[in-house]
Amino acid sequence: MSEQNILEVKDLTKHFKAGKKQIVHAVDGISFTLQRGKTLGLVGESGCGKSTCARTIIRMYDPTAGQIVLDGTDITAMKQKELKPYRKKMQMIFQDPYASLNARMTVRDIIAEPLMAHNLVKSKEEANDLVYPMLERVGLTKEHANRYAHEFSGGQRQRVGIARALILEPQLVICDEPISALDVSIQAQVINLLKDFQEEKGLSYLFIAHDLSMVRYVSDDVGVMYLGQLVEMSEADEIYRNPLHPYTKGLLGSVPIANPKLARQKEKSSIEGDIPSPINPPSGCRFHTRCPYAVPECSRVKPELVDVGGGHKVACHLHK
């Protein structure tokens, strides 16, 4: 186990029961490592298990199988009580800035809650000494402390959410689509704030999104997920320049291009059909039902994620 890895995930699996005998394969055998101070982007269609993956890592859900190693400690099987000290190292920023803040609490109380939960401060006054600088750090002021969350705009709320996640000075922050509910103009503001924090404190981010250009901007590495599995993983620019997996190609091909001339030249490689049900995922390569290059082998044998050179990993029979 390397010292420089803040998070190691091995064969992480999370299945949910749906009905009596049906099982939803939300996350199926995902492995990756995240280095200190780096950002790993996870992209994929809606319903591919990105959020479940994040929530399992932060142990909101109990993993079905696999291993989660946070900063050299295996937290996979810990009970919630044992887990508490490790929560300080790992925090989460949520997708919906409207639902993730309690409407009955003032911003001060929201940001002070982690401090109270971990007994880092004894009184409200003591908490204020930490809360006010943090508020200013995210671009809000002392005057905002007594306000309720609903009085803020979406961007301001998301910054409150960031302040709440960062006040414990965690080493790893899981960002579960932190910008997808925001205006484009506000997205940049929030992303830049996150980047500033990363430079300042050496944070690591697990950044989940479906906005591919934003992921390219923030991430050092990018993992592409399809139906609960990682299909391709590489350094960010490499994956955008040279996508190998047909799904990644399709995903990148579906990004609209603003310039119509360039858009006409672009290779049309959109993905046909819908994502199959995670209750009965296809055998072999899960993408073979929609893959334009599928060969008979694809439906029988599950391709492993293999390094095709330069740390570019892909799970596809076409690339071995």
């Binding site: 929560r87 809650e113 939960a117």
Partner: peptide
């Protein structure tokens, strides 16, 4: 969920 990830009792 946020409160749980924070570690609140």
């Amino acid at each position: 969920m946020a409160a749980r990830t924070i570690g609140s009792s």
